[in-house]
Amino acid sequence: MRILGLLAAMAGLIVLPLISSGYVVYLANLLLTFTVLCLGMHIVIGEAGQFSLAQAAFYGIGIYTSGLANTAFGWPLPLSVLASGLVAALVGLCIGTLALRMRDIYLALATFAFGEAMQWVFLSWTPVTGGPNGLRIPPASLLGFEIVNDRQAYPVVLAITILMIWATVVIARSRLGRAFRAVRESEVAALAMGVSVQTTKLAAFALSAFFAGVAGAMFAIYSTYIHPDSLGFQTTILVLTMVVVGGLGSFSGAIGGAIVFGLISELLRQAPSYQEIIYGLILIVFMMFAPRGLFAFIGDNLKRFARA
């Protein structure tokens, strides 16, 4: 049953660009990018229980690294995607090493401040980012083909997303994934089991930065323009909201949240002035009444309904 559903979803995703308009394909690319961003946040918050608020900054680092790799170095696509992830992870490693030396909440605060600082860097480092004018992203090329529109980018974006989902599953089931959850549940017990708590937290943080960096590279494949304004705290909150809607700590929730809430936020673009209130209310209401996310909430209530 599960396998059938998965196959159906795969088939749908593959034929999507053949049957739909350009806008739908663009949206699909965007949702897949958000899926990878959410997976990154899921690893650090959901799996390891560490609070990082710099997802947008790492996303930005990924976008610009990718842009630079394309224009300045003319690297092939797989290399520039990898480079985007690695550069983000490296920066994350530096920030994390400092922030994780002390209390947990320092990670939240330091990453928050780091996010603000990075937005400033994006706005000021004109040669790389275009500064306040934004940056035209040149088309990426794969095996000699130039990717010039959403439809051409889609298969590549989809392939990367599937790869990242697979990686998330493998990591979650591995020794490292178990260590993440051990640290989340009880640091003292994790210590007694021989888990090096600091290293584990740092690994979660760097991995989440890697995912955000890759998401940035994905964005750079199908987009032609990026402005630092869209790389601020707002974007971090958007990703956080998606993960919260899907259910903190749930892997399928992170993906579901990205898609469901990605669609909602796209609709909300019609009413930008309500966006903030709605994001904020969603965060508050979910934390109050459905901390395990929309899907678990519906599931629980269906069960209750069935029993009644």
Partner: peptide
């Protein structure tokens, strides 16, 4: 209510982030 729904301190922090957005949006409205 948030503390009642889940013991995790992360959830409380998320609720305060939610409040910050609600207040910002309200003032704009």
């Amino acid at each position: 209510q948030v503390a009642h729904a889940s013991g995790s301190p992360v959830n409380l922090v998320i609720a305060t982030l939610g409040l910050s957005y609600v207040l910002k949006g309200l003032v704009r409205q």
